[in-house]
């Protein structure tokens, strides 16, 4: 039986009716025409479907759409410096271009959303497994960035550029804190 739900996606509200089997990824791409999140594996193994749901980075392929009724979803397309969908670049978009952080671009929307979620987690003092002292606030060095972004694979191997882009936006944020 289909279920009615409301999703806010990149600032715009949508009502849709879905089969419970529909993933959030398929709902976004096939029902709402938002092809920003990509289907790399459909099994939680690559990160290319990463979106922000209520501000938190998650995998849209392992999320059933029906479980997110009433949620605010932000894809790399709607990510901007202002409110979702308000247009204009997010600093991560700029940094990915400036640091040459992609080749084919397939993983990029997932990388960008993951980086946005990750930088928020970092700003809240959340540790990672490579954080030496779990009692102290972590430092955003290269090892921390690599570990925190490890859920996003890039088959073009653009990792050095990706880490540089994330580091740059991380530093800019530190500066404004």
């Amino acid at each position: 039986m289909d279920h009615e739900l409301t999703l806010r996606v990149d600032g715009a509200e949508h009502r849709l009716s879905v089969d419970p089997r529909t993933s959030l990824l398929d709902a976004l791409r096939q029902r709402l025409g938002n092809t920003s999140p990509k289907k790399g594996c459909d099994h939680g193994q690559c990160g290319s479907c990463t979106v922000l749901v209520d501000g938190v980075r998650v995998l849209a392929c392992l999320t059933l759409a029906v479980t997110r009724d009433g949620s605010e979803v932000v894809t790399a397309d709607g990510l901007s410096a202002g409110p979702p969908g308000s247009g204009g670049d997010h600093p991560l978009h700029r940094a990915f271009i400036d640091e040459d952080a992609f080749q084919c671009g397939y993983c990029t929307p997932g990388q960008v959303c993951s980086a946005a979620g990750m930088l928020d987690e970092f700003a809240r003092g959340r540790p990672s497994v490579v954080t030496g002292d779990l009692g102290a606030d972590p430092e955003l060095d290269d090892a921390e960035i690599a570990e925190r972004m490890s859920g996003n694979l890039c088959r073009c191997g653009a990792y050095p550029g990706i880490r540089a882009a994330v580091a740059r936006v991380g530093r800019e944020r530190e500066g404004t804190r």
Binding site: R57, L59, V129, T131, R148, G151
Partner: peptide, 10 residues
Amino acid sequence: LSGASGQLRN
């Protein structure tokens, strides 16, 4: 923290 990925742990 050593399990899965940031997205999956969320």
